[in-house]
Structures are given as structure tokens and as C-alpha cells.
Design a protein around this nucleic acid. Structure first.
Lengths: 213, 213
DNA sequence: GTCTATAGCTGGATAGAC
DNA sequence: GTCTATCCAGCTATAGAC
């Protein structure tokens, strides 16, 4: 009688609740101490439990990092997938860029976990990683709507976006010195992509400009 | 008789030699184990000495990081200051971009130490940091030669450069998927900066594109 | 300056009572 | 599942002989 499916579900939901509570404590810890400085003692203390109890829900420290990664990737995908209040492809692109930068700057530890590989022995599991690639595919679709489909241009766009985020976080955390350049960035980028002069070759005539090719 | 200035210089140079040997061992260690995984035991072992001997030359682990930072910053500045075999400002700009990316991708640990703040308790001393700012000032001069002096455009350039490096290191280490876009990046950037349409205001009419401003 | 030896601490992870 | 108690490994840094 005790093993009805509802009882099982209830137990499972209780377990998930405890797991998310631990992950929340982990986020608080890394935001305060730094992403790489997460310790299970501190984490357990913040969650109001003891170290062994953590191992009742996660099999290792990296499993906690993986849960954090999965949650961050899901949040990231959901944020980018929210509807935009305009249909103009260019404005949507600008909005997505602002969202991207806003998401990253809102939580630096989360940004480091998601986009920089700074933790020595950790690599995210495919399940946790999947939402992130899905979200990046969405931004690829956005570029297609703007008439950008060349592989080189897609790579240029990703470099542009990550550079914007990186500078904003590194040199003006909490400010908007680079965020406010989003619109101008999109103008520059789309103008270039729609330019009739197609530089398919790589600056061929004046070779050797001073470096290894 | 033993305290002549030449004898002092000789002792001092011996000391500097030992210091650089330790720093070299440190570089080998971080390249192999990761920047954050540097341990004094491993470092001493690689240098052929013991842990206490390290403390005869550096007062702490962070002092070693600082020496590494200073050396990396100096190498960085020297690399960017090398002469270019052309006088065309645009080609020099492309060359400097390639040098920058090449320098960063040649040693990822060095890049992380110089440009990413990933080590918990470490911050470089002003003496070690100074060559880096000097080098960045040089690239500012390069932009001036290309007719770019607007503060917004300078910020866009730094974002562009760091984004290029970041993507190259993160998604194609050892390759040239983004490096080979350097020339096209410069074309896009300079074309935009020389464009007569000055967007001094921030996309004023179609405000609220979907996000917090 | 260089060593042996070790202090002092913190980390992840486990055993076993309850 | 949760705890107390503990193991064991690794770290930075120091003491003191030579």
C-alpha cells in the first residue's frame, strides 16, 4: 500500500526539493567566495546540513557543479527563448544581444561556469550541456532572419558577442559601458554582412603583414 | 675586499638566475596541470629543489604568480612593440591583431593569468601590471593612426579583439578558425568607424526592443 | 642557501550509530 | 537520511640542523 505511484512521486519531489536547496546554497557560496573556491563544508553549512548529508544527494563535488551547470544552461536557454515585443529582425537581434550580455553580467560566477573552463577536473555532462547548444542554435536562426548565413559571419558574430560580454565583465562590472554599444555593434555587423564587396579570399595581395600566417 | 660592487652584482645575478629558473618551472607546471593547480611541491620538484628553498627566493605562492605575471606582461609589450614590415596603418593594425591573438593562443595558461582573473586570492602588483597598460596604450595609438579616436570606437575595438581571442581559444585551440578572420574584422571595423553616418544617439526612435535598458 | 622534518590547516570522502 | 567521528591526502609555510 505504501508503494503507490503517488507516494513514490511525493518522495521523489521531496528529494528534488532538497537537491535544489543544496544547489541554491552552492550558488550563494560561489557568488561570495568565487567559483573555484567552493568547498563542501561551507556549502553544507549554508544549507543547514552536514557534509555527509550532501553525499546523500550528490555523489561528488563535480556532480554539484554539473547540477549548477545544467540549471544555468536551462535558465540561459529560457531567457533567450522568451518572446520579443517586435518583429523587426534587426531589433530582435539587438534585443537578444542585450539579453545575452545582461544574463552574463548579472551573475559572474554563473558566466564563468557556463562559458569559461576554469575548474580543473570538471566537464559538464552532455545532459547538462544540451540546453546551451540549443540556445546557440536559436541565435543562429536569428542571424538567418537577418540575412546572415555565411559560416565566417556566424563565427564573427560569436566573437563579437563574447568580446562584448568579456569586456563588460572585466572592465566595467555593474556598469553599461559596453552594453550600451550593442546597437552600434549590430549596425556595424549587419552593414558588413550585407556589403556587396565579398572578401572571400584572405587579403591575398599584400601578404606578410608582419606575422606568421 | 669581498664587498666590491662587481661581487655584489655577481651574487645578485646568480640570485636572479635562480629566480627565473623557478619561474620557468612554474610555467611548465601550469601549462601541464592548469593555472589554478599550481602547487609549490610540484614546482620545487620540477626545479630540482625542495619546497623550503622556494621560500628563499619568493616570500609566498602569490609572489610567484606575480613574477609570472610581470614576465608575461613584459613579453606581451615587447611582442606588440616589435617593428612591422609595412607602413600602411591598416596593415599594421591587422598585424597587431594577429600578433595579439597569436600571443594569447600560444600559451593559454599565460593568457588566463594575464587577462582573466581566475586565481582566488591573487592580484598583480602595479610594477608587474605596468607593461600591460603600456602595451594597450600602443594599440590605442595604432587606432589613432587609422583615424579612430572616438572613445566608443576604442571600446568596440577592445571588445572585438578579446572576443576574437576568446573564441579562438575556447572553440578551436591550436587552429586558425578565428585568427584567419582578422583581416575581415579590421575591414568591418574601419569601414564602420569611417562611415559618415554618426550614430551618436543610441537607436532612439524604436526604443524598448525587448529588454531592460 | 639548502636540506630534513614537521607543523598546521583544509580539502573531499567514508564508516557506522541512530 | 542524518548525524558524529574520522580517515587520508594535499596544501602552504616554518623550524632548525648543516
Amino acid at each position: 500500500m505504501s508503494k503507490t505511484s503517488t507516494a513514490v512521486d511525493w518522495r521523489e519531489s521531496r528529494r528534488q526539493f532538497a537537491r535544489t536547496a543544496i544547489v541554491e546554497a552552492a550558488w550563494a557560496a560561489v557568488r561570495e567566495e568565487g567559483l573555484g573556491a567552493l568547498s563542501l563544508r561551507d556549502l553544507a553549512s549554508r544549507a543547514g546540513i552536514t557534509t555527509p548529508t550532501v553525499y546523500a544527494y550528490f555523489e561528488s563535488k563535480n556532480a554539484i557543479y554539473d547540477a549548477m551547470f545544467g540549471q544555468a544552461a536551462t535558465d540561459f536557454a529560457n531567457r533567450l527563448a522568451e518572446p520579443y515585443d517586435t518583429d523587426d529582425p534587426r531589433e530582435v537581434l539587438v534585443g537578444s544581444l542585450r539579453r545575452f550580455v545582461g544574463f552574463c553580467t548579472a551573475d559572474v560566477a554563473r558566466y564563468q561556469l557556463l562559458f569559461q573552463r576554469t575548474i580543473p577536473g570538471f566537464e559538464p555532462s552532455p545532459e547538462s550541456y544540451e540546453p546551451a547548444v540549443q540556445a546557440l542554435g536559436g541565435s543562429r536562426d536569428l542571424l538567418t532572419l537577418n540575412g546572415v548565413s555565411d559560416a565566417r559571419h556566424l563565427d564573427m558574430w560569436t566573437a563579437l558577442v563574447t568580446g562584448l560580454v568579456d569586456q563588460q565583465i572585466s572592465n566595467d562590472p555593474g556598469g553599461d559601458r559596453w552594453v550600451c554599444l550593442a546597437d552600434e555593434f549590430v549596425t556595424m555587423f549587419l552593414t558588413h554582412c550585407q556589403s556587396p564587396t565579398r572578401p572571400a579570399r584572405r587579403s591575398s595581395p599584400p601578404r606578410r603583414t608582419g606575422d606568421k600566417p
